[in-house]
Amino acid sequence: MNGVRATIAIVVVTNCVTTLVQAGDDAVTYRNVRSITTCKGPRGFTHAMRGIAVQNDLLYVVGDQKLLVLRTNSTLARSWPTEHPGNCVAVHPDGRVFVGEEGQIEIFSPDGKRSSVWRDAERLDFVTAIGFAGDAVIVADADGRCLRRYTADGEYVRDIGKGKRLRGFMLPNRYLDFFMEDEKIIRVADPGRHRISRYTIDGERLDHVGHFATKSERGFPGCCNPTNIARTPAGDIVAVQKAPPMVKVFGCDGEFRTAFGGKSFDPNCKNSDAAVDRAGNIYVIDTVRLEIVVFGPEQPHGTANDSEQMP
């Protein structure tokens, strides 16, 4: 009973309708459907909220020294502490929860019992993203400026993005993010080069999309963008930028689709992790307000406006 009361007590969902910037006639557009504020507060996060993942209609969020599991209706399903502040979280298809931290990865069972810790002082310096490709576990080490490939048992295999003529990703903001396009291909954000690059899990560099731009929404501004990326069920690329914070969607071939969300974030937001659920809803962390901003897809030909309305 107490648990139910506690859950209800921290659930505050702010409904608002923001949105759209622009999109082509046949493009999917997005609108800000709500902000999940349940993660903020004494039972949630008080200082930092850094990583988010979605699986089976559950949101996994890490920050401070804890992990929160939220239902998509924003109620708290469960939570547990982590040894160090989590930078990122990923859920293995078998249900295990991987939390990337400074110097290590903690692995939990679905109910929050810690089953294992991978420590590798040289290769897991600052873990900011984790992904799975069959038996391989791909880890982003921001301080090492590359991806590390491990076996499912935690045995190091190789670096990706560094070595030979590859000098590592350019990460002035100490954050490296990627997603698995399929079991062989990795899409990785390279913010210092204003690109999103493709690599094989064997370390071969394939190609990249994205370019520097300030006045056009089709490129990325500032010193280092995009900082975070995710993949929609349709295979589109969701790229989150800072200064100003904004979400941009590109096709898998790099074709610009839409940009939105500028007014939904605190302008000081940076390194805002993103995740996409099966319905195509995009969840982005507001790292200053400690909230999750949710954008839902709309059918083509939706009405475009850039104003905020109260519910």
């Binding site: 350019m170 002035p172 903001n173 210092g192 080069r193 204003h194 520097f212 500032g222 010193c223 280092c224």
Partner: peptide, 8 residues
């Protein structure tokens, strides 16, 4: 300093 390619 980030030693960025494009320094604002």
């Amino acid at each position: 300093c980030g030693r960025c390619y494009i320094c604002p």
